[in-house]
Computed example of a mutant assay.
Amino acid sequence: MKDIHKSSKKDLYEAPDYFLVDDLLTEEHKLIRDAVRTWVKKEVSPIIEDFAQRAEFPKHLIPGLASLGAFGPTIPVNYGGAGLDYISYGLIMQEIERGDSGIRSTASVQGSLVMYPIYAYGSEEQKTKFLPKLASGEFLGCFGLTEPDHGSDPGSMITNIKDMGDHYVLNGSKMWISNSPYADIAVVWAKDEQGIIRGLIVEKSMEGFSAPEIHGKWSLRASATGELVFNNVKIPKENIFPNISGIKGPLGCLNQARYGIAWGALGAAMDCYDTALRYSKERMQFGRPIGGFQLQQKKLAEMITEITKGQLLAWRLGVLKNEGRATPAQISMAKRNSVETAINIAREARQILGGMGITGEYPVMRHMMNLESVVTYEGTHDIHLLITGMDITGLNAFQ
């Protein structure tokens, strides 16, 4: 194995819980969360700054993520999943993103955007063939929806499939695809000859399929991002999802991912707050800790207030999700709120840390840069605002 550089700096993270939200969790929830937290402290925190600085994906973490049940936490056990509820899923994403948004992206894509559609829309043969290998980390998957010219308007995609009798032929391309350079399979959305969106599974070995990596990112630098290019790729008919057609297919997947982000982004916010709080008690200026000055206390008090509101919103959303009552609009609101909370807290924490805030000695700047992607993917900040607007007015501002 490649030499993995580990930091000697100890991860001192202590999770904030100002309104005793832990009391709302079951013992199983807390055990799952604490197991992931321990793993992140041991395996992610010591190496993540180095991988982010070098813009390299720490692929060696995949077996550990699988062993935690981070790949498809809510997928039934008989398909290799962990069979957990949605609050457990949220807590897992929170703890992983506390370590790094890019690592959480890897887990989110695998579980919500690859395993979920195979489970929800796939044939029994597709489920048994792919889900156990994805759950174990033997296979890595990616999700192809966004195109170079079609992001917030996925219904205008031009990637297409043509029926050739005993198989389909796939042509087109997808952009900004997490995991794609390392993926063994891709869940891809394309239009058939009638213009109907269909889902299908593309396998790495298929001729005409390539996944070039995107370089030069300032965000999610420890995550692998690439394209998907399809040049007359022959797709067996058994690789088409039989139980879904239309835009509702990919949107159903995005709802799963957005739910995970609603919890995950709060993890990044909590890490920034915890870092800033500890630093404010240790950093001396004018003969006393900077945490004793009013402006620093204002920043910290506002941070913990917004985190607490986000925790309660995420918890309530998890309850509704477990009951099958969470709406796409509610998920959009929570995703948007959590990411806005996190990105604002990262920026304020950076100010508290002063010049040290821009270095890899602390995680804040890395979180801040990562969140610039999280605020855009799985529905941009503005799109989620319009989803809420349409939900409360009944009027569509998209058209």
Rank of each mutant, 00 (worst) to 15 (best):
S7P: 04
A15I: 13
L24C: 06
L25V: 04
R33E: 15
W39H: 07
K41L: 05
E43L: 00
I48Y: 01
E49L: 04
E49C: 07
A52K: 02
F57T: 07
L61Q: 06
L61N: 07
I62F: 08
I62Q: 02
P63R: 07
P63F: 11
L65V: 00
L68A: 08
F71C: 03
P73A: 09
P73T: 08
G81T: 00
Y86K: 01
S88P: 00
Y89W: 11
I92T: 04
E95H: 02
D100M: 03
R104T: 01
R104K: 12
S105L: 13
S108H: 00
S108T: 13
V109K: 00
M115A: 13
P117Y: 03
Y121N: 02
F130P: 00
P132S: 13
K133P: 09
K133E: 12
A135N: 04
F139Y: 15
H150I: 09
S152Q: 12
S156F: 06
I158F: 06
N171Y: 06
G172P: 04
G172V: 08
S173F: 06
S173L: 08
W176C: 13
N179E: 02
A183D: 09
I185Q: 00
V188E: 08
I197N: 04
M206V: 01
S210I: 12
A211T: 04
K217T: 07
F230T: 08
F230S: 01
K234F: 11
K234I: 15
K237Q: 12
E238A: 15
I247M: 14
I247Q: 06
L254Y: 13
L254H: 03
Q256I: 01
Q256M: 14
I261G: 03
W263K: 01
L266S: 00
D271R: 15
Y273L: 10
D274V: 03
T275M: 08
K281C: 08
F286A: 15
M303A: 15
T305H: 14
E306C: 05
E306I: 06
T308A: 15
Q311S: 10
L312V: 14
L312Q: 15
L313I: 10
A314C: 08
R316H: 14
V319M: 13
R325C: 12
R325I: 10
A329P: 02
V339C: 07
A349Y: 00
R350W: 10
I352F: 00
G357N: 02
M365N: 01
L371R: 00
S373G: 01
V374F: 05
Y377G: 00
G379S: 08
T380G: 15
I383N: 04
L386M: 14
I387F: 08
M390A: 13
T393C: 12
